Computed example of a mutant assay.
Amino acid sequence: MKQTAFPLVLIVVGVLWLLVATDLAPATSTLIALALAGVGVTQLVLEGFNKNTVVAGPMWMLSGGLVYAVMHRLIGLSVAGAIATITLGLLMLLARLPAVPEPPRPGPDLRKAPRDEPADGR
């Protein structure tokens, strides 16, 4: 997957660029807002509900919404910053609740087998 990620990113960026250049896509700020919100949703879907994602996922989604609101002049930047700060604090308190599970610990990397040491110590 690592080898195909960069070409796929280039293709997606190129397609988005083409759509924006030909006025077939929404404004760049709208695309950025959608991408930020998409990162939050993706994080919650892929990693599940735990102490990390209960903060990070909603903050990504809120960031997308705030970018959209500021860029379309629905709210000011100062108001967006205040909303983000309050929300981050509330989510951090929520993450401390005992009902929110701990994130899974990373297991041993099974792809890397331990090297066999020679008997003479070299």
Rank of each mutant, 00 (worst) to 15 (best):
Ala33Thr: 00
Gly89Ser: 09
Leu19Pro: 00
Asn50Met: 10
Pro7Met: 08
Pro7Gly: 05
Lys112Pro: 01
Arg73Glu: 07
Thr22Glu: 03
Gly76Thr: 13
Pro103Cys: 05
Arg115Ile: 15
Gly14Trp: 03
Leu91Ala: 04
Leu110His: 11
Lys2Arg: 10
Leu36Glu: 10
Leu62Tyr: 09
Ala80Leu: 15
Ser29Trp: 05
Leu91Glu: 03
Ala119Met: 01
Leu24Pro: 02
Val13Met: 13
Gly38Glu: 10
Val39Arg: 05
Ala56Met: 15
Arg96Asp: 09
Asn52Met: 15
Val45Pro: 06
Leu10Glu: 09
Ala37Cys: 08
Gly65Glu: 10
Val39Gln: 07
Ala99Pro: 02
Asp120Pro: 00
Ile83Asn: 14
Pro58Gly: 05
Leu16Cys: 11
Thr53Ala: 08
Leu110Ser: 13
Val70Phe: 07
Val67Asn: 01
Ile32Ser: 09
Asn52Leu: 14
Ala69Thr: 04
Val67Leu: 07
Asp109Pro: 06
Leu19Tyr: 01
Leu24Ala: 05
Pro108Gln: 13
Leu44Cys: 10
His72Lys: 11
Gly121Thr: 00
Leu36Phe: 09
Met61Thr: 10
Arg111Asp: 04
Thr85Phe: 00
Gly81Met: 13
Glu47Cys: 15
Leu91Tyr: 08
Val20Ser: 00
Pro118Ile: 03
Leu88Gly: 08
Val45Asp: 14
Pro101Met: 03
Gly107Gln: 11
Thr30Ala: 09
Val41Pro: 08
Gly14Lys: 03
Lys2Asn: 07
Met61Asn: 04
Pro101Ile: 08
Leu19Arg: 01
His72Leu: 05
Ala95Phe: 11
Pro108Phe: 14
Leu110Cys: 04
Pro26Arg: 05
Val55Phe: 06
Arg111Ala: 00
Pro58Tyr: 02
Gly14Pro: 01
Asp120Gln: 03
Met92Ile: 15
Leu62Pro: 04
Leu77Met: 13
Ala25Trp: 00
Ala27Asn: 07
Leu44Pro: 09
Glu102Asn: 14
Val9Trp: 07
Ala27Ser: 04
Val100Arg: 03
Thr22Ile: 00
Met92Phe: 05
Ala80Asn: 15
Gly48Pro: 03
Leu8Cys: 08
Lys51Cys: 04
Gly40Tyr: 09
Ile86Thr: 10
Val79Gly: 12
Met92Pro: 12
Val45Phe: 15
Ala99Gln: 02
Pro104Ser: 13
Leu110Tyr: 01
Arg122Thr: 06
Ala25Thr: 05
Ala37Val: 15
Gly65His: 05
Gln3Val: 11
Leu46Ser: 10
Val54Pro: 01
